[in-house]
């Protein structure tokens, strides 16, 4: 990845396709979907430069992007690890052992909730209900849902992700789900 903040041709084609979904003059509607693309393309978070760039594409003021990016929980305004592990902590997951999952990951990775491993591989976060309550406990990483978690499954997942070493995004096409 180059350091210049500019969509490559493929990403730009996606962005243009998204903008075309909305009526003339309503291109601001494309903001959320495009921020997802930008986050995936530019290192897993939205730097001020990235947000300014998105503003210029949509022909809106940078503040209109900042206020939106800071409202929604999926947009990272600070750098995170390549794999953001989002463990659901709400009721149905809590009663089926979500706290154990969090503790287990904390121990395995030597970090606390909210922290990133030194190698920049993992960030651990707890989140609210992800619509997987019937397959609790669960965690999301990028586009993939990992459900009915056991400690063995968590270990295997961390090993797999570390070995692959790549950035996981919500926009990934090789998503996994176990529904």
């Amino acid at each position: 990845m180059s350091n210049e903040i500019k969509f490559n041709e493929e990403a730009m084609a996606t962005v243009n396709k998204i903008i075309a979904r909305y009526p003339q003059g309503k291109q601001k509607s494309a903001l959320l979907p495009i921020l997802h693309v930008a986050q995936a393309e530019f290192g897993g978070w939205l730097s001020p430069e990235t947000m300014d760039y998105v503003a210029s594409i949509l022909n809106i003021k940078p503040i209109e992007v900042y206020e939106v990016a800071s409202f929604y929980s999926m947009f990272n305004l600070k750098p995170v690890g390549k794999c953001l592990l989002e463990v659901c902590r709400t009721s149905s997951c809590w009663v089926r052992g979500a706290e154990d999952v969090v503790k287990h990951i904390e121990k395995r990775l030597g970090i606390k909730e909210g922290e990133t491993t030194k190698d920049g591989m993992f960030t651990l976060k707890t989140v609210e209900c992800l619509g997987s309550c019937g397959t609790a406990p669960m965690l999301q990483c990028g586009a993939s849902f990992h459900e009915n978690l056991t400690m063995e499954k968590v270990d295997a997942l961390l090993d797999e992700y570390r070995a692959a070493g790549k950035l996981r995004s919500y926009t990934d096409m090789d998503y996994k789900n176990t529904l």
Partner: peptide, 8 residues
């Protein structure tokens, strides 16, 4: 947004 894969 968390259902991104479902949107696909």
């Amino acid at each position: 947004g968390e259902y991104f894969y479902v949107s696909r």
